[in-house]
Nucleic acid binder design. Structure first.
Lengths: 213, 213
DNA sequence: ATGGATATCCCCAAATACCAGTAGAAAAAA
DNA sequence: TTTTTTCTACTGGTATTTGGGGATATCCAT
């Protein structure tokens, strides 16, 4: 009733004009959609999103102003119903995971076939979560690095790092675990060695990246 | 040549015997597969996996010995080609994301329809990544909680916290940003106030929880 | 233009963390 | 039951952070 456009409203965000032209052409000629807007920066896109309906955003990870992952977050914050389909060259697993983490409904590599592109757009609009073939492989094959990444921590070390992350000092932790503060110091040193980091800040970061906290 | 079984080898891991029976029945009557084994504990499953070929594992998140997320990791470490399909009651977004993070190729809720179950198994075996309808919705709709909440940081503060998380000291950061170390100290104090934390460890943790790093 | 937030700089003292090495006892794994 | 790992504790340092104060200049918005 209040909709001004019956067609699906698509927004593109990418800083490659040529590629964007191609996308545009493919979209209008193959799917019954409106190109609501093409944006080079994330900010432009967000501004537009504040005022207009957008059903689906096709976006690149590499943008001039903010990175695509943060942009996903912003988009979902502003318009939870807008579907995000990432269209990018980045094939690193962690990047893929992060975009999904932040609300993207799909991830395609830029070398995706036209067929795949068409069907993906169709599918995400129906609420599906889609990945292009290559991306599926990447997801299914976590690298050795990502799997073996977290150093094996002993029970004690896990306790210590947990308490550390709660902002407690060695002394407090020592009291809590009823051991000497010197012992806690040793645990900390061992932890830092295992993670190959220089101080607690980095240690906590590493541990969280590996989801050990 | 060395394969003793031509049929797809399926392993089930779950601590609900009844449900497992049902699964078994559905699988053998609908798909041309062998039930290689049914396991109640993750350890049993891993032991079996060390000695036998398993093409696909259907697994629950809640297990008596280890949690399903860690098990995904172990499975992928031991047998990268074994496909993991999670079949669980847990509908929390973070759990879903973590299983995928750790190598699962799909996630179904236990109330999934038989059709969906059949087609999902079929699809993951072809290398696809599949989610049941409900799961897709969960993925596409990150909770407010996950998106919102972080204190507003100034540009400088973001820089500082970023560098802090890389294990740099105030002095180093000061050099890098060409300001006095005292300034950095102030930023740190302000950051800690904003996050209402006591020290750097907790600060990094909080910042990471809010995905500011 | 007056407040508010930001960014910068300063001092001091106590608390805490970090570095490097060693080593015995307890627990777990082979 | 060996062997290995983990937990524990110590010495003796240096470096860094933290918490308590303040202060000035700029930019931004009401």
């Amino acid at each position: 009733m209040f909709k001004q456009h019956n067609k699906i409203q698509v927004a593109l965000v990418d800083d490659h004009p040529t590629l964007m032209e191609g996308l545009k052409a493919i979209l209008v000629s193959n799917l019954n959609v409106d190109i609501a807007g093409c944006f080079v920066t994330g900010q432009d896109m967000l501004n537009y999103l504040g005022l207009n309906r957008v059903d689906i955003v096709l976006l690149d990870i590499a943008l001039p102003d903010i990175n695509g992952i943060a942009l996903c977050q912003e988009i979902k914050k502003k318009a939870p119903d807008t579907v995000i389909l990432v269209f990018s060259n980045h094939s690193e697993r962690s990047i893929i995971m992060q975009t999904i983490q932040n609300g993207a409904s799909g991830y395609l590599l830029k070398n995706t076939s036209l067929d795949e592109l068409r069907s993906s757009i169709h599918d995400v609009l129906e609420g599906k979560v889609v990945f292009s073939k290559e991306v599926q492989e990447i997801i299914s094959r976590p690298s050795k690095n990502e799997l073996q990444g977290p150093p094996r921590l002993t029970r004690r070390e896990k306790q210590v790092i947990e308490l550390l992350s709660e902002g407690k000092t060695s002394l407090r932790i020592a009291e809590e675990l009823s051991v000497s503060a010197l012992t806690i110091d040793t645990h900390r040193r061992n932890l830092m060695q295992k993670f190959a980091v220089k101080n607690t800040a980095e240690l906590i970061k590493a541990a969280m990246l590996h989801r050990l906290i």
